[in-house]
Design a protein around this nucleic acid. Structure first.
Length: 247
DNA sequence: GGGTAATTTCCTGCTT
DNA sequence: TAAGCAGGAAATTACC
């Protein structure tokens, strides 16, 4: 579906320093010269220059800040570079993620044309859609257009471990066989590639020292909060009553 | 600056 | 013997 845009070309019309002029310093830190070996933040780059990881982080940011339901966004469909993302049409977005895709397209265009939004603390940060489009909007449970709780900061780092694993389970393409459902109805899943999972989590948290031993300790903390339940099998976990969005 | 939540790190002991 | 699990304790980090 997205192949049609995967090989397109677009020449960015703005230089990075021009883009940086749009930065809202209340919401985002001022762009810095990247240190050697330190990956640049997606917020400091033109969308056309984003890597696949940047696109993933942007999606996460949109989910957190605009209360989009991550379950409605098939992340595997957005496993593209920023350049490919920018070449996607609104229809591509809508086809990939329904109403969420529709909003994501609007958000991306807002960033491309206006830079990152500079909101005051009291403003509603709803996805940028026109009044006419708004009239066409059907009420849905999918998009909860509340003012985000993380209004003063990017929420790129707010995702939790269990949500990260849940999203992996729900995106088989991105999963790469790392996690598998044992009993999807019951929320029981198995860690197939423990160290790969730890590395992926470590990459997300920018922690190269992450390993499965530490990750599993973090998972065991979820037992007491009801996010996970114990399963008396090695490498097998079960979502608890306080975990949501995995069904 | 203090409180809190969510890890992260380290550890010992046990089980498979 | 290695890998994984269980859980205590303290440290770290980010956010409110």
């Amino acid at each position: 579906m997205l192949d049609s845009v995967a090989h397109g070309t677009i020449v960015p019309t703005s230089e990075p320093h021009f883009w940086a002029d749009y930065f809202c310093h209340d919401l985002y830190p001022a762009p810095r010269e990247p240190s050697p070996g330190v990956p640049e933040l997606w917020t400091s780059l033109l969308p056309e220059h984003w890597t696949k990881d940047h696109v993933c982080e942007w999606l996460q940011y949109c989910c957190d800040s605009y209360k989009l339901d991550a379950n409605c966004i098939p992340f595997s469909h957005f496993n593209v570079s920023g350049l490919q993302l920018c070449n996607m049409t609104r229809d591509d977005f809508t086809e990939a993620a329904g109403l969420c895709g529709y909003y994501l397209y609007s958000l991306l265009q807002e960033i491309r044309t206006q830079g990152f939004p500079c909101h005051t603390n009291t403003e509603d940060r709803s996805p940028p859609i026109s009044k006419q489009e708004e009239k066409l909007e059907v009420k849905t449970e999918v998009v909860k257009r509340n003012r985000p709780s993380t209004i003063n900061r990017p929420a790129v780092h707010s995702s939790h471990l269990w949500e990260f694993m849940r999203d992996l389970l729900l995106s088989p393409d991105a999963n790469d066989g790392i996690l598998e459902w044992d009993d999807k109805e019951q929320g029981v899943f198995r860690v197939v590639k423990s160290e790969a999972l730890a590395q992926m989590w470590g990459k997300r948290k920018k922690n190269e020292r992450m390993n499965y031993e530490k990750l599993s300790r973090a998972l065991r903390h979820y037992y007491k909060t009801g996010i996970l339940e114990r399963v008396d099998r090695r490498l097998v976990y079960k979502f608890g009553k306080n975990a949501h969005g995995w069904k």
